[in-house]
Design a protein around this nucleic acid. Structure first.
Lengths: 370, 370
DNA sequence: CACTGCCATGGTAGCGCTACCATCTGTCGT
DNA sequence: ACGACAGATGGTAGCGCTACCATGGCAGTG
C-alpha cells in the first residue's frame, strides 16, 4: 500500500500541508492590502508596469483593435513579464457573462456522448471558453437541477443532449439568456438551435436493409430505451409494418443500461421467445457485439442463420468477425457543429439554419451479407 | 435538412435572438441600479426579505451552525421564495477560492479515463463543487497550458492523471495552493497525494500467468504507448526475462492511438515477424479484442494456438467468445477515492495515507485456458 | 456588581474586473 | 479659425459576495 508514508516531510499528525500557508501569525507588518489573493499579478499591476490605465489593459486583452499599436505592444510586454492571467471569476462578475459553455449529457462513459463531448472540447480549446460538463444520468429531474445550477453562472451558451426536456427544463433553457443548442436529434421545435440526425429514419433504414436482403423474422433488441432508442424502435416498427413483418413478440427491450453482456442475454431471451428469429436490429453496437458473441458461442451462423445490424458504427464493428453492419452517425461532428453554431450566435451572426440534420449512413457489412 | 426554417418566429435576416434582450432603448426610468445582472435575486434581496444583514444570509448558507435556529429558518424561507441561488463567480472572487475541482485527463473517449471521470463526477454531484475538465491529449505541453489556465481560477483541488508531469507542470501543481491528487498510477514521489495501481505489476502478473499456463513465445502488442503502457511493457519484459523467454522481436508497438482495428493490424504484423508466436499480452482490451477477431478471421484457435490477455477488463471481455483473460483495474473507484482524499484535505483532515494503491486483479478466462 | 469572555449579528471594505461616461487629442469642414 | 466629431484613453462605480472587525447582549467569575 502506501510506501514511505512521510517521505514528503510531514511530521506525524501535523495535518497542515505545503499548500496551506495561511496567515500563520502574520504580524501585519505590511499595510492591510492584499488580504486575499495569493499575490498573483492583477490587471492593476500590469497597468502600472505598462504606464497606462487599468481599463486600457482590459481593452487591449479583450478587444485589441480598440487600442493603439504602441500601447498594445507595451501592455503585451508587461503581461508577459508579470505572467499575468486574467481572473475569470472577476471577469464574469464584472461583465455578467462567464466564458463558459454549459454542456449536459446523459452519460459520460457511453462512447456516443463521449465523442460529442470530445468534439465540443476540441472546438473550444483554442478560444477563451471553458466547458462546464453536467451528467444528467438520463434523468429529467437531474437535468433540471443542473440547469438550475448553471443559471447563476451566466454561461455563454448551453449545449444539451436530446429534445425531450421536461417542461420545467425547457423553460429554464428558454430563459437562460444565451444561445442554446440541442444535440443528437432532429425535431420540429428546438428551444433555439438543433444539431443531430433522425433516429427514426436510422432505425427504419437499418430495418429496411435487412428486409431487402431477405430477412423475414427480424427482431429488435434494445437496452436503456431512452427517447432516442424509442425512436429507433419506432423506425424499426414502421419498416416492419410496411412490409407486413411486424410482430410484437419480436421486440425485446429493457430499461437496464446497455452493455455487451446484456446484449448476449437479451439475444438469448429473444431467441427463446421466438426461435424462428432470423435477424436482429440492435439498439446500439454494444448490444450487437453481444449478439455476435452469443451466436459464436451457440454456433449460430452469421449472417446465414441470423443477420445482425448495430447502431452508431463504432470502430470495432468493421473489425468484428464477421464484420457488423451498422448505422454510422457523426457524433464528433455534432459536437463541433454545435459549438460552431453557438459561437456564431454569440458573435451576433446567427446561422440562418437553426436546425441542422447531419444524417447517418448505413454501412453494409458481412453480418447481413446474404 | 432544416425544417420550417422560421417557425421560431424570426423574421428573415433579423439576427437578434429571443435571449438578446439588451437595453433596447431603456429610457432610464429607474434609478441607475442593476445596470447588469438580469434581475436575478441577490443575497441582499434575501437579506431584506428575511429582515437580516446580508452577511448573516451568507453565513446561514455556508456555515448554518453559526446562525441561530430562528434566523436560519427565516432565511431559508426567503431563499425558497425568491428562488435565490448564489453566484459562484462572486463567491469565488470574494473568497479567493472557487468551488471547482480541476481535472486533467489525457483523453475523454478512452473508456479508462471516462470511468475515472465518472467516479469523480458521481462523488462530487452532492456537494457544492463543480468540475473543470481538461483534455491534455497525452501532451505534456497541453497539460502545462491547462494548468496555467486553471491557476487563476483558484480551484479547490486538482486531480491529474499520471505521475509523469513535465518539470514545469510539476512546479505548477506544487504551487497551486490546493490539494493535488495524481491518479491511475502508484509511484514514490507524489506531488501531494496519489491513488492508483502499479501498471508494471499488472503487466508482470499478466505475463507470468501466460508463462505459467504454458505459453512460451509470448508477444507484447501495444498502441499509444503512453507512460502507463510503457510500464506494462516493462512488467512484461521483467516476467519474460525472468523465465528466459524475452526476445525483442516479440514486442510490437506503435504510438498510434489504440483501437480494435489497430489491434488486428498489429497482431498480423507480429505474426508475420514471428510466426512461432503462441500468445500475446495486449496493452489494453481494445487491442485484445482486435487480436481475437483476427484469430477468428485467420482461423487460429484461441486459446490452443494463441493465448490472449487484455488489460482493464472492460465488460466485453467476459462476453467475448472465447472470453478473454484480462487485468481488472478499478477506474471508477480511483475517481471516487481521489475525490474523497481531496475533500478530506480541504476539510483539514489530510489522510495519513498519501499514496493509495488500489491494486488490480488478473481475471483468468477461456482465452488462456489450456 | 464591575469585569471578562463569548456568542450572534451587522457594517464596511474590498476581491479583480469591466460598463459607463468623461476627457483629451487631433482632424475635418465651412 | 472655430466648432463638430471621431478615436483613444482614463476615472469612477459598481458586479455579488465574503473577510475582517465592531457591536451589543448575556452568562460566568471573583
Amino acid at each position: 500500500m502506501a510506501r514511505k508514508p512521510d517521505e514528503h516531510g510531514d511530521k506525524g499528525d501535523d495535518a497542515t500541508a505545503h499548500w496551506q500557508k495561511r496567515s500563520a501569525g502574520n504580524k501585519a507588518l505590511t499595510k492591510p492590502r492584499s488580504r486575499r489573493g495569493g499575490g498573483r499579478p492583477t490587471i492593476a499591476d500590469v497597468a502600472r508596469k505598462a504606464g497606462v490605465g487599468a481599463i486600457t489593459v482590459s481593452r487591449a486583452l479583450r478587444d485589441p483593435e480598440r487600442v493603439s499599436e504602441d500601447l498594445r505592444r507595451q501592455i503585451q510586454a508587461a503581461v508577459d513579464e508579470l505572467g499575468y492571467v486574467p481572473d475569470p471569476n472577476a471577469r464574469a462578475l464584472a461583465s455578467a457573462r462567464a466564458e463558459v459553455f454549459g454542456v449536459l449529457v446523459p452519460s459520460l462513459t457511453n462512447n456516443v456522448f463521449a465523442e460529442v463531448v470530445r468534439g465540443i472540447y476540441d472546438s473550444l480549446s483554442d478560444g477563451p471558453f471553458r466547458v462546464q460538463l453536467g451528467n444528467t444520468h438520463y434523468s429529467g429531474l437531474e437535468e433540471e437541477r443542473l440547469l438550475q445550477v448553471f443559471g447563476p453562472q451566466r454561461p455563454a451558451a448551453l449545449i444539451v443532449a436530446g429534445v425531450d426536456q421536461t417542461p420545467t427544463a425547457r423553460k429554464l433553457l428558454e430563459s437562460a439568456g444565451c444561445p442554446v443548442v440541442q444535440v443528437m436529434e432532429t425535431g420540429p421545435n428546438p428551444v433555439d438551435m438543433l444539431v443531430g440526425f433522425s433516429h427514426f429514419e436510422g432505425g427504419r433504414a437499418a430495418t429496411e436493409h435487412m428486409i431487402e436482403v431477405g430477412y423475414r423474422r427480424i427482431g429488435f433488441i434494445g437496452a436503456r430505451m431512452d427517447p432516442r432508442s424509442q425512436r429507433r424502435l419506432a423506425g424499426y416498427r414502421a419498416a416492419t409494418e410496411a412490409a407486413g413483418l411486424f410482430d410484437p413478440r419480436l421486440v425485446t427491450t429493457t430499461p437496464v443500461p446497455s452493455s455487451v453482456t446484456l446484449g448476449r442475454e437479451l439475444f438469448r431471451d429473444a431467441l427463446a421467445k421466438m426461435p424462428t428469429l432470423d435477424g436482429v436490429f440492435c439498439n446500439n453496437d454494444d448490444i450487437a457485439l453481444g449478439v455476435l458473441f452469443e451466436c459464436h458461442r451457440a454456433a449460430i451462423a452469421v449472417p446465414k442463420s441470423i443477420g445482425i445490424v448495430g447502431f452508431n458504427d463504432l470502430d470495432m464493428m468493421q473489425s468484428a468477425f464477421p464484420s457488423i453492419t451498422s448505422v454510422r452517425t457523426y457524433r464528433y461532428e455534432i459536437g463541433r457543429r454545435s459549438v460552431a453554431m453557438a459561437l456564431a450566435a454569440i458573435a451576433g451572426k446567427r446561422p440562418e439554419q437553426r436546425v441542422v440534420d447531419l444524417g447517418f449512413e448505413l454501412i453494409r457489412r458481412e453480418s447481413t451479407a446474404r
